[in-house]
Design a protein around this nucleic acid. Structure first.
Length: 670
DNA sequence: GTCCCAATAAACATCT
DNA sequence: AAGATGTTTATTGGGA
């Protein structure tokens, strides 16, 4: 039920079947104009967030317990401003200046997957090094020579505490090393599984990518907790379980530890030189601090005073470590879930579908300009597995960025017009993702016009009845198996509205065809934004240089190999560059749609289009038994190269059967 | 702020 | 009469 509601929310469903007003995507986006609550927007992330929150609560409580366990050594009260100051360090900052990162930042990093495995590893190591260094710094601080004002008893107590803390940190070090090992395994797994659309190393976080912040361990929480007001939340929380994972070290682990020690020495050395991992850009990088220190000396002073080896600092370290560990676990779980999802959706290893051009995802993403720059141009594109699909996040056009968090924002996909302006033929776009769109309840990032055209072009005879178009929608996109009233209305609306769709009377009734010229006109209009070009189109023999010059670039992608998905490949491409006539000849056209002259038209087109690809969907008036719609495009008939070269081996009955199947399917789902 | 485009909703007409 | 199909208008929101 929970799933159902989330699904409903995500996919912009409605209850139109019952005659109730539909909840359109725009309504959702606008925050339910009709007063209907869009509650549940975040429902898709609830589980993840809650899990993370739970885990971090555990960490928090563990740290609290640690505090409670400490003998009343007198908590060093942090300055109140530290308690209250919110922590807001952009991830990008943290990445530019490698410092201790906050739990929030870690979450962001992990969730957004903006870090490469190497970067993640480096961050973990750095965190460890920083914490260790902090211990040493604190040890220096607690050196009797520095404790001028401390009474002897207090010194003793602090030294004992230091010893104890060092022990704790040794254990924590082991834990961190264990984490690193886990991370390493995760990295291996990740690299072997899929190529994440993360930025290349060194790239900062993506500003536009604003995933909702999980209910993590807020700085306020940390500070509050650190203040140790005993508020202890009372929970008898499970103790930190790092002991259990501290065993079983391998030689590799020891080696790694050696390297860590070296790194510590280096960092200590650096500190002497005036740098400190916890100090950068004049700001203390202690988690939750951000105290402004004008110079390094001031920073050291601040560090020793504010972040001394007290319960708070220790607890913060433990919390940080716990957070890291939990995030690791979370990452692992999420990754497993992702694998399961992908396996379920279409990346069945047995499927030969493995896209011959795995980069298509990239193209699709880059086309989607409103995709929150989730795809840096130089993002690593190492398709790993043959079946390595799209990570839904990236593939989801606006789902962005495509499933999950990106899923919800994908709702306005079509409305945002990525496809028409920058994208290419639908077939080349969805072909590699055919299975994905077919199974995933994700709105395709194409306009209705684009989809309708594709539906018609996909048909054997370049014409479809309205019902067949419906069926294509439901057959091709899982998304359109719901909200039938809404999108069917939209389909009809688009068919009527756009001149590029031509209604042709048929014996069966009316069928819809595509006036490819008109369609390209629209496209070129949008691509070039130059009306003059469009003006030239009809008169200047259409397929002349103007069209090609303007469209070739746009259509270049059309010529990409469109293999691998038969269902979408037959007609696939758009326009002169990729249009395909195969499968059009040699069939039995519907009685009223005989286009006897198509060969001649094709022949005459050869000099215009060396590819021999004309606009299969173009319907020369001569073939039009009835033009219901007035076509302003007064093409000279002789210039109409193409015909609705009807064919076919395509049996309407067969199609109808299929439609029936699909229809049933859609009906079931509607 | 304006314009354009696409999505959506809805009313209405026509056809089956 | 009901539903499907087709047309048209209005509204809304995003993007340029």
């Amino acid at each position: 039920m929970m799933q159902e509601s989330a699904r409903e929310t995500i996919s912009n469903s409605s209850m139109s079947q019952n005659g109730m007003s539909t909840l359109s995507s725009s309504q959702l986006e606008a925050g339910s104009r009709d007063g209907r609550s869009s509650a549940g927007d975040m429902s898709s992330e609830v589980s993840t967030v809650e899990l993370l929150h739970l885990q971090q609560q555990q960490a928090l409580q563990a740290a609290r317990q640690l505090l409670l366990q400490q003998p009343g050594s007198g908590l060093k009260s942090p300055k109140s401003r530290d308690k209250q100051r919110p922590l807001q360090v952009p991830v990008s900052v943290a990445m530019m200046s490698p410092q201790v990162i906050t739990p929030q930042q870690m979450q962001q990093i992990l969730q957004q997957q903006v870090l490469s495995p190497q970067q993640l590893q480096a961050l973990l190591q750095q965190q460890q090094a920083v914490m260790l260094q902090q211990v040493r710094t604190l040890a220096l601080t607690l050196n009797p020579s520095h404790l001028h004002t401390c009474p002897y008893e207090e010194q003793q107590q602090q030294q004992q505490q230091l010893a104890a803390q060092q022990l704790v940190f040794q254990q924590q070090l082991l834990q961190m090393q264990q984490l690193q090992q886990q991370q390493h395994l995760l990295n291996m797994q990740r690299q072997g599984l899929l190529s994440l659309p993360g930025p290349a190393p060194g790239q900062a976080a993506l500003p536009g990518q604003t995933l909702p912040q999980p209910a993590g361990l807020s700085p306020a929480e940390l500070q509050q907790f650190g203040s140790g007001t005993g508020g202890g939340g009372g929970g008898a929380s499970p103790p930190i379980s790092h002991h259990s994972i501290a065993n079983g070290q391998s030689p590799a682990l020891n080696h790694r530890r050696e390297r860590e020690r070296e790194r510590e020495r280096d960092s200590l050395h650096e500190e002497c030189g005036g740098t400190h991992p916890l100090y950068g850009h004049g700001v203390c990088k202690w988690p939750g601090c951000e105290n402004i220190c004008e110079d390094f000396g001031q920073f050291l002073k601040h560090l020793n005073s504010e972040h001394a080896l007290d319960d708070r600092s220790t607890a913060q370290c433990r919390v940080q470590m716990q957070v890291v560990q939990q995030l690791e676990i979370q990452l692992s779980k999420e990754r497993e879930r992702l694998q399961a999802m992908m396996a379920h959706l279409h990346m069945r290893p047995s499927e030969p579908k493995s896209s011959p051009k795995p980069l298509n995802l990239v193209s699709s993403v880059t086309m989607s300009k409103n995709l929150p720059s989730a795809s840096p141009p130089n993002l690593p594109q190492t398709p790993t597995t043959p079946t390595a699909p799209i990570t839904p996040m990236a593939a989801m056009p606006q789902v962005p960025s495509i499933l999950g968090g990106a899923n919800v924002p994908s709702m306005g996909a079509m409305r945002r017009r990525h496809s028409d302006k920058y994208s290419m033929p639908l077939s080349s776009e969805i072909a590699p993702n055919y299975e994905f769109y077919k199974n995933a309840d994700v709105r395709p990032p194409f306009t209705y016009a684009t989809l309708i055209r594709q539906a018609i072009m996909d048909s054997a005879d370049m014409q479809l009845t309205l019902n067949e178009i419906y069926s294509w929608f439901t057959r091709t996109f899982a998304y359109f198996r719901r909200n039938a009233a809404t999108w069917k209305n939209a389909v009809r609306h688009n068919l009527s509205l756009h001149k590029c769709f031509v209604r042709v009377e048929n014996v069966k009734g009316a069928v819809w065809t595509v006036d490819e010229m008109e369609y390209q006109k629209r496209r070129s209009q949008k691509i070039t934004g130059s009306p003059s070009l469009v003006k030239n189109l009809p008169s200047s023999l259409g397929y002349g240089s103007a069209l090609n010059a303007s469209l070739q670039a746009a259509l270049a992608e059309t010529s990409l190999p469109l293999l691998g998905t038969p269902g979408l490949m037959n007609s696939g491409s758009t326009g002169p560059m990729g249009g395909s006539c195969h499968g059009l000849l040699g069939g039995d056209p519907p009685p009223t749609m005989m286009h006897s002259a198509h060969d001649g038209f094709n022949g005459s087109l050869d000099h215009l289009d060396t590819n021999g690809h004309s606009s299969p969907g173009y319907s020369p008036p001569v073939h039009m038994p009835i033009y219901v719609k007035e076509e302003p495009l007064n093409m000279d008939e002789d210039d109409c190269p193409m015909s609705l070269v009807t064919t076919a081996n395509h049996s309407p009955e067969l199609d109808d059967d299929r439609e029936l199947e699909e229809g049933n399917l859609s009906e079931d789902l509607e």
